[in-house]
Design a binder for these strands. Sequence first.
DNA 1: CTGAAAGCGCTTACAG
DNA 2: CTGAAAGCGCTTACAG
Lengths: 340, 340
Amino acid sequence: MKGKATSFDIAHLAGVSQSTVSRALRNSPLVKAETIEKVQRIARELNYKVDKHASSLRSQQSATLALLLFEDPTTDDSLINPFFLSMLGSITRACARQGFDLLVSFQQLSDDWHADYEDSHKADGIILLGYGDDVDYRPKLRQLDQQGTRYVRWGPQSQGQGLSVGCNNRQGGQDATEHLIRLDRRRIAFIGNASHHYPEFFARYQGYVRALMDAGLSIEPALQHDAITTEQAGFDAVNALLDKGVEFDALFAASDLIAVGAMQAIQSRGLSVPDDIAVVGFDDIPVARFASPPLTTVRQDTNLAGAQLVDSLVRQIRGEAVTSVTIPTLLIPRQSCGER
Amino acid sequence: MKGKATSFDIAHLAGVSQSTVSRALRNSPLVKAETIEKVQRIARELNYKVDKHASSLRSQQSATLALLLFEDPTTDDSLINPFFLSMLGSITRACARQGFDLLVSFQQLSDDWHADYEDSHKADGIILLGYGDDVDYRPKLRQLDQQGTRYVRWGPQSQGQGLSVGCNNRQGGQDATEHLIRLDRRRIAFIGNASHHYPEFFARYQGYVRALMDAGLSIEPALQHDAITTEQAGFDAVNALLDKGVEFDALFAASDLIAVGAMQAIQSRGLSVPDDIAVVGFDDIPVARFASPPLTTVRQDTNLAGAQLVDSLVRQIRGEAVTSVTIPTLLIPRQSCGER
DNA sequence: CTGAAAGCGCTTACAG
DNA sequence: CTGAAAGCGCTTACAG
């Protein structure tokens, strides 16, 4: 046998037609059980695999999803947000379970997206996952909508923005803040952008505000400081607050990456976490557990999230009715709040 | 225009044949410049994209690489080694530069690999990246060899094991250990497996031994403790050494993940890094810089590594002669050795 | 339950 | 420089 075997080779060896081979390989109920068995045995012996391009071309579906990971501003190449990478892991597993292959691409939010996966039939749909200014993000989504591209987006639900899967950021923020209040912290800083440019962070901020108000505490604008989701931004934000002489005994960081940088800044000034300043993060990235001290945080269930993203997209591709999904968060207490 | 446009639609609109459209879209020098321009303009207007399956089926190449990430033993889902994830980032970028798509799959080393990317023409070749017992790994490689699959592997060169790209583990281990010796540490532990089951770790261990011998220090078996590449393993290993009463003033961990866990264990016993025990890791994962204290480590250049993996594989696919590559490492001094 | 035939949308000799 | 034609390897009506 020279070159790869084709379904004709199998047909010849099995003494049936090529059509029957094609059916038998996909376990068609139309084919007699023993024929299926014979065909599949021969296919195995020949190490035959259905040609993906031929079958996709004919059936007009690729059984492939594309994952578009983006991040803005450009962080150091190696500093891709670990949260997204956890998601990547769960997404690949979910795809495998559903029999889809996964095409992965990193792009900048600021770039012209090369998202022609569907137009070129490379993928049946796209999963969007990343971090960046929502104002830059929306036009990209609009473009995908216009092209009729099927996609699902990780993020908060919002009207007119297609299908999304996201966690309950507001509730997570509220839980984190209530936890700090319960531990008798009263001057709680929020480190993270809190505007419509970053809807997820903004929702976490709103949860923070809600918790403070419920506890009868005042909202001090001086206690909020912008930060994108990098260690450096957390580090810089805390230093800026301390330099300004802002006093606080706790800090809720909009992401673990920010929290890790924030703890470094606190400790570099000779202050203690949690004695002087208690810290809560958001995400529960792998590092959180091994930070020093281990970081109390709000877990987003990446396994559930990845499975949900894939499931929603696959169902959309199949033409089923799908709606956006919000998944719950879970507070994980560790030592950075002085409790256990 | 209903459905996706085809090259025939463009041909019709441009008043040329479909063959000419096909050539013009790929900037064939056979086609007159103005024809190319006209065809490409119309294609743009129609948002036309070449159908991947049709072109791949016809030309018998998919312009896609597959990345098979594996890890053994199964760690917690979210704890995929950050080093590999950094590599993933650089590999996707390298693929994009070379005009290849990337199919990603996570699998267990212990599983039957579903690595039929090439047989089914999904990919032109495979990049193997992961961590696990080499004794389990080798049969998988042999199988790929038998099938004539084109692949490149991240790891140390070794005869009869196909194409590989890896870093100079031995030199890296030697550099790390010499750094500790230079800082007057004399009782240096090695945390990590040191056998042919883990060739990369073993090479780092050999560098460690070389440095000790060059400095006239003795090699004490009690100072080596096995650990796979997880924080937990590092944590456990250090506790085991301390429990046994082994005395050491420095520690070279075979990976950053091990080092981070080791530092946690040291600190949890009330000891100081670096005052009591200086620590060096290996990899320079993103966390290293934000560990407490920041971790001195041996950097593997993931950008270079990813580019090299892709380049080697693509050249192999093109039928060019390729040989295995070893890339250099770089010692990154931070505070975990008490220097800066 | 099976087979003969059409056709998915390209690329690429071949002929001019 | 361009066009007509074949064919990549499947899936799927259609006919029996």
